[in-house]
Design a protein around this nucleic acid. Sequence first.
DNA 1: AAACGCATGTAAGCAGTTACATGATTAG
DNA 2: CTAATCATGTAACTGCTTACATGCGTTT
Lengths: 186, 186
Amino acid sequence: MSLRHAILALLDVEPGSGYDLNTRFKRSVGFFWHASHQQVYKELHALLEAGLVECEEELQSGKPARKVYELTAEGERALDAWLAEEAAYLKIRDPLLVKVFAGKRLPPAALAAELARHRAQHEKTLATYRELDAMIAGLPPRRRARYVYPQQTLRMGIHYEQAWLAWCAECVRDLGLATIVAGDEA
Amino acid sequence: MSLRHAILALLDVEPGSGYDLNTRFKRSVGFFWHASHQQVYKELHALLEAGLVECEEELQSGKPARKVYELTAEGERALDAWLAEEAAYLKIRDPLLVKVFAGKRLPPAALAAELARHRAQHEKTLATYRELDAMIAGLPPRRRARYVYPQQTLRMGIHYEQAWLAWCAECVRDLGLATIVAGDEA
DNA sequence: AAACGCATGTAAGCAGTTACATGATTAG
DNA sequence: CTAATCATGTAACTGCTTACATGCGTTT
């Protein structure tokens, strides 16, 4: 049930509409906690009904009204209460590992191709994380100070992607997939 | 929907009862895909109804009958079909990161304590992974060969835990929490 | 003319969690 | 006497996904 709290945390930084939250999600909390737009809207409704956020409609010409949400005092209390709890300790939970676990049933070329695909994705993600990290590092001190905590989550993202990349390389080596070209699959 | 496939993969290695699968889960796939016993039993029923597994009851005196499940030919086909699909690319999704993201609302000592707790858990998990890895490495070649694929998943576990530990240290340093003792929280 | 960005949702369904439930045997 | 191990489940609920739905304005 962290989506609720992720939203509270985002609204604590700055009020915004469902649409705003969705875009901001994509470039911050979304790196380590995915949310679909439907889920965000649904959660906002629930939060509104629970009195943790309040909503003001901004009418616009030609577009649907923007519903701007903001934390209430009760919302801040709820966020702090959640923050005071011990966060659960989680494990990886990635379907690729289930596949590798059963890897002996798979043609080596298929496994090699799959690992290459994932490696490419992790490399891409790593690159965007590093860009963002550099961007924050380049900010003037005052503004940079606002991002010290979010930046740490970005750093975990970097460690995480590096771990996957290191593993991919090791895996290709240890399973003897290095000489197999992805296109050999057929 | 990987639990279903994780179970198929485990049954492919060796048939077993729901109870067996639960224990084997804990010391293999469970490292990167958690399952509650209820969920395993439920999934086995679904698998049975779908004809992907078959079940033989072993009556025992004084204990409930062991229901031993085994893959059917159709089950093997389903497993192979799933293995042939591209595995989804997932991100971290860890509540601790949501907490750190909103870290400025938290007393530093509380954050320090939380990070220390997680560090300890990751260290413990890392130690068990390394033990298992060493155990596999110590096996005679014939038996070791059976574990080449599962061992790779264990290796990812090791990389993953190391990433968290490296991050924890960095985080404590960058947020200036090094001098704060966990007990200061009160 | 098509695609993309803005802006909001509903409905159905599934995977997974939490709580509840039973009961014998064995080890400390 | 208590706890753990063996062995199986049901029921209620929640969080999340997937598919469906609408409609204007701007860029290509």
